[in-house]
């Protein structure tokens, strides 16, 4: 049985084939993976907020898109991934509740997605595929042997990106 690495909220894990990395129940959070198909090294960060510079509690870099992605990049490279081969995938960023007159905090999923993309671009990492938005939760997992990113939902079925 291959190793199953579980990633909590505002947390990250890196690993090698044949491990699988999983994160459960993402709402507005985003699960971003970085993967090098040749060395079969990859990692997943489960970010919950976009911007560390706008939060009062920013000791944990894995909590934010702008600091979590560079951290993950550094860690997968340390484990043997080669930067020019690394591709990103991401899923999540939904808006679970619709309110009339909703505050900014309700649209956090969208802002998470925007800043994640911007940060990846800044790091020079290509986004291979994504599954963002909607109004439902996702459980995501990446198989580090194949690089396939599987997304499970309760009402919208399963898909692989």
């Amino acid at each position: 049985m291959a190793e199953l690495l579980k990633v909590g909220i505002a947390d990250y894990k890196v690993g090698k084939s044949p491990a699988t990395i999983i994160s459960y129940g993402l709402g507005s959070c985003i699960g971003i993976t970085l993967y090098d198909a040749k060395s079969k090294v990859g990692g997943l960060v489960h970010i919950m907020l976009p911007d560390s510079t706008q939060a009062r509690a920013n000791e944990n870099p894995a909590k934010f898109a702008d600091t979590g992605i560079p951290l993950l990049l550094k860690e997968v490279i340390a484990l043997g991934a080669v930067k020019s081969r690394i591709e990103a995938k991401m899923a999540g960023g939904s808006q679970m509740f619709q309110f009339a007159g909703a505050s900014d905090i309700m649209a956090i999923g969208k802002r998470n997605a925007e800043l994640a993309k911007k940060t990846l671009q800044k790091c020079g990492i290509k986004i291979a595929s994504e599954d963002l938005g909607g109004t439902y939760g996702r459980t995501v997992e990446m198989d580090l042997t194949t690089g396939l990113y599987k997304i499970r939902t309760i009402n919208k079925g399963e898909k692989t990106i």
């Binding site: 129940g25 919950m48 706008q54 509690a57 679970m96 509740f97 996702r138």
Partner: peptide, 20 residues
């Protein structure tokens, strides 16, 4: 009606800006 984690995200995000 969804995954508990996804629903609780709404609350957690609010608190996450201020603390852990």
């Amino acid at each position: 009606v969804d995954m508990a984690g996804a629903i609780l995200n709404v609350v957690i995000v609010q608190l996450g800006q201020m603390g852990d």
